[in-house]
Design a protein around this nucleic acid. Structure first.
Length: 514
RNA sequence: GCGACUGUAGUCUAGUGGUUAGGAUCUUGGCCUUCCAAGCCAGAGACCCGGGUUCAAAUCCCGGCGGUCGCACCA
């Protein structure tokens, strides 16, 4: 599938219209950092609000906001510090890079070389005369690859801190307070949306792999002896496409199409809660415009799973730019994290059952990458429409996602039409809509500009507005127009953004493109 | 991190050891304009950064930074 054009087109529009662009551009940029512009921020926030609607508000789950800079103790306990340190060595002849500790283990039969530290690894590499396993060339001095950002807390001699590589740890370290605030009832969930940082070795493809990005994460805590999910029935009929561990091992191409109910019943998905969130996740992506056939859940093989996980499904989306990409991980984190923090802090985080026994809650985690979703929403919504004169870019964002909901413009900028349009614009703003006013260039140009940032409705003030108070609404998707009276505007806008059909708003006065 | 290719107005691009660095589009002001990037006039806006070679570098060389692709990595 060669569609490099799609990506290039989108990047070009993104920069030109202000969705996003590389950060620190005036100083030459650094890979892995992106700045969102006005319409990009609005789109991203709308997606975030939608996620909260699907994963948090309807269930009455908790939210927290935890620091980005963390005590090093958090990641010592969680296992991240141990798992983030890697000694990498590259070949001076062929340039290939290797895990230095793994090469030593292969050559000497030693185990857990990594835990011996950097000096030992460098010494062992020399003493054992380890060469490049591919071409036999001389290996360069190994360097520490730390994919967590480190920082200093306090001006002098302060404590070492780390920038969080996931938001999840905040939900674990604050579990006890949240549990108590929830009047010690379980199951319940805590979520957090926020920036996380990973010092990626090689960030690529714009927002696909960033060093600083936004995660929307939720940790659902439950009792492993009572693992049922009270909302499973709401999504159990959802059909999802799954590639199981078995299928992944035999490299099956076609995903299994199966209902959530069956997937849980057959044990393909280990817990009801994970099944539930996979169902919710499918619906959430549909609400962003991604149809079911371009979604799938792919199981991680044991070796590729994180140190904390007993089962993980990536939620993947098929894009035109990059093929199948991961937009979320649905992980079964078991009691790994709470146990780890209990051990590290000495604080008891166990929960009391009615029968007097205690247990450490198990955790199901859906974790969505907001930057990738923002790109996916753009790509999904994007259409390049051929007109007799040229190509027009249109973003068919769902109404709830569009950066601006309404644009207001005069048909021409004379005879008082601009002034009238400004009063309508004020009215629309005071009704609470995200709106924009435009009187530059010709009317066609203004419509084109709005299509290119995905504004679903355009209000045009013309001479009949001046004479009879009748204005026209234009539909972004069909370019059709209906006429309504200016007094009806608040009512009509409300109806439209509640989901009313465009044509139901008023009398059709123009078909698309006329 | 390694290799190949690559970097010119906001965007897309022409160009080359000596150019007033050209065009398109966007954009700004004016004129015009009764519905899909119309037209006319005027304006604004660029050689990624740092060294080197040279009488002269945007052009050639080296390094950095960015981008695309491949390898490795993606806890």
């Amino acid at each position: 599938m060669s569609t490099g054009n799609v990506y290039e087109n989108l990047i070009e529009i993104a920069k030109r219209r202000g969705f996003f662009w590389p950060s620190f551009e005036i100083y030459g940029s650094i890979a892995g950092f992106t700045t969102y512009g006005d319409v990009g921020v609005k789109l991203k926030r709308n997606i975030e609000a939608q996620w909260r609607e699907y994963f948090v508000r309807r269930q009455g789950f908790f939210e927290i906001e935890d620091p980005i800079v963390n005590s090093s103790k958090v990641f010592e306990s969680s296992g991240h510090l141990a798992n983030f340190k890697e000694y990498a060595s590259s070949c001076s002849q062929c340039g290939r890079g290797f895990r230095a500790d793994h090469l030593i283990e292969e050559k000497t039969g030693m185990e857990h070389v990594e835990t011996q530290g950097g000096d030992a690894i460098k010494r062992l590499l020399r003493e054992n005369n380890v060469k490049c396993p591919v071409c036999g060339g001389q290996l360069k001095e190994p360097t520490l690859v730390l994919t967590m950002f480190q920082t200093q807390i306090g001006a002098t001699g302060g404590e070492v801190g780390y920038l969080r590589p996931e938001a999840a740890q905040g939900m674990f370290t604050n579990f006890k307070r949240c549990y108590q605030a929830n009047r010690e009832r379980i199951p319940f969930a805590i979520s957090q949306q926020g920036k996380v940082l990973r010092n990626e070795v090689s960030p690529r493809r714009g927002v696909h792999r960033l060093r600083e990005f936004t995660l929307m994460e939720l940790e659902l805590f439950f009792d492993p002896v009572n693992p049922s999910c009270q909302w499973l029935s709401e999504v159990e009929g959802e059909k999802v496409r799954i590639i199981t561990e078995d299928m992944e091992e035999r490299e099956a191409k076609q995903p299994l199409e199966i209902t959530i109910k069956e997937a849980v019943a057959k044990g393909l998905v280990l817990t009801e809660w994970q099944g539930y969130f996979m169902g919710v996740g499918k619906r959430f992506l549909e609400s962003l415009g991604v149809p079911p056939e371009r979604q799938q859940y792919r199981a991680h093989l044991p070796l590729e799973r994180s140190h904390y996980s007993s089962q993980t499904f990536d939620h993947e989306v098929q894009t035109r730019s990059w093929g199948w990409i991961e937009v979320a991980g649905h992980a079964n984190r078991t009691d790994y994290d709470l146990k780890a923090h209990q051990k590290g802090s000495g604080v008891d985080v166990s929960v009391l059952r009615k029968n007097g026994t205690r247990f450490i809650p198990h955790v199901i985690e859906p974790s969505y990458g907001l930057d990738r979703l923002t790109f996916v929403a753009m790509e999904t919504a994007w259409e390049q429409r051929e007109t007799p004169k040229e190509k027009r870019n249109i973003f068919h964002f769902p109404r709830t996602l569009a950066p601006y909901q309404v644009s207001v413009q005069p048909l021409v900028t004379k005879d008082g039409l601009s002034e009238k349009a400004l009063t309508v614009y004020d009215k629309v703003l005071s009704e609470g809509y995200r709106a924009t006013f435009d009187e530059g260039g010709s009317i066609g140009r203004r419509y084109a500009r709005q299509d290119e940032v995905g504004t679903p409705l355009a209000i045009t003030i013309d001479y009949t507005t001046m004479e009879k108070g009748v204005l026209t609404l234009r539909d972004r998707d069909t370019w059709e127009q209906v006429a309504i009276h200016v007094d009806e505007l608040p009512k009509k806008l409300n109806a439209y953004f509640q989901g009313a059909e465009f044509r139901a708003l008023g009398q059709l006065v123009a078909r698309g493109g006329e």
